[in-house]
Design a protein around this nucleic acid. Sequence first.
DNA 1: TTGAATATGTACTCGTCGGTATCGTTTTAC
DNA 2: GTAAAACGATACCGACGAGTACATATTCAA
Lengths: 209, 209
Amino acid sequence: MKRADKRDYLIDVAMQMFNRGGFRGTGIDEIMAETGIAKTTLYRHFASKDELIIAALAKSDEATRDELRTFVERASNDPTERLLATFDQLDIWIRDGEFKGCPFVAAASEFCDVNHPIFQQVRMHKRLYLAYFEELVRAAGISDPKRFAAQILMLHEGAVAFAHVLGSDGTSFAKARGAESVASIARSAATHLIAAAMKTSSGEAEIVN
Amino acid sequence: MKRADKRDYLIDVAMQMFNRGGFRGTGIDEIMAETGIAKTTLYRHFASKDELIIAALAKSDEATRDELRTFVERASNDPTERLLATFDQLDIWIRDGEFKGCPFVAAASEFCDVNHPIFQQVRMHKRLYLAYFEELVRAAGISDPKRFAAQILMLHEGAVAFAHVLGSDGTSFAKARGAESVASIARSAATHLIAAAMKTSSGEAEIVN
DNA sequence: TTGAATATGTACTCGTCGGTATCGTTTTAC
DNA sequence: GTAAAACGATACCGACGAGTACATATTCAA
């Protein structure tokens, strides 16, 4: 394995383990054991555990945003449908057996000092996510796209937290109510929000609460 | 200070510190230093740190649900207004300088094994929260209250995560857009959802996505 | 007042975890 | 083919954190 590949492999495995066991909860030694890469080598690639975490989050940020983007572009050409498609992708993520909530939110909880570089990394990720939503909202011709994008993001984050704690599959909620997934419930909420937003932006400016 | 009071004081201070510095991030020694209570005494009250955490979460669960309940009951008699009032209380919480995201969600991230008693405690808390929302939704005469309550809870959780990472005050979002708070944006979304739900439940059963 | 329960303080154990040092081996680049 | 860089293994360090032991002081009930 080439040097660069080794670095990438390290990042990938580490991210997976952080997801499963938390950031503070996953030790360097465990990452060593799992990857089969020596500690010395690890520390030649990353100056510290924190830097490994940051690198892992950075790569994950890129990857998830890319995936979302391509998923949305393939889903439809209609801007409104595209906005809704983000919930379909969310659904896939949540249903996937590895789902353990949003690792970025988890990182923000574990490294809760706002000035900590890891927290900053998380903030950057969410800003970019929000910016992408804003782009989609703008394309759909909805007024006050910043605000509406925030609402959509909230629905996403909420669905993730909900599914994480209450269980996406079976445990407590989903099973009780047919087979409707958490993400699809969020999607349905988004549908109503979009309908309402379309109505107000097509007519006169209207104040709703 | 009486024994029981000491226990309570311990729990309160610990919870505050967990909020600020995370659960794993806050050491027993720091709690000692902050409370002025000796380690021996602490361990006479709680068998382990985990039990202290569980006790702290349990008390916080009671307290927050009680606060919400009384806030809502004082806010209005109209069931719909009551549902919306939950967002006003959310607003107060988020704006409060101590806000660091939801400690329950943080706990679920840090103790991410689903069978861990701390995770279970978190799950229980969210179930109770959800049940209360369901109660409010039912009172408002909205159909499929379980589902709708889930949507409201998602909006809440989403607003909390959003404000935690992106900053409720100033940092990146709120300041840019006038003085509108994250919670009030979520509230506005809830308004639209309620309006849509009222419309469909007053007429014929209607399938919306 | 006296005895039992409870508190304090300090010092200690013991495991873990992040990070380093050393040294011999393998790979890569030219 | 050879030098330089990268890798692996193992042992190690220092810090910290959870939890205990123990000897002393304080409260409180009978």
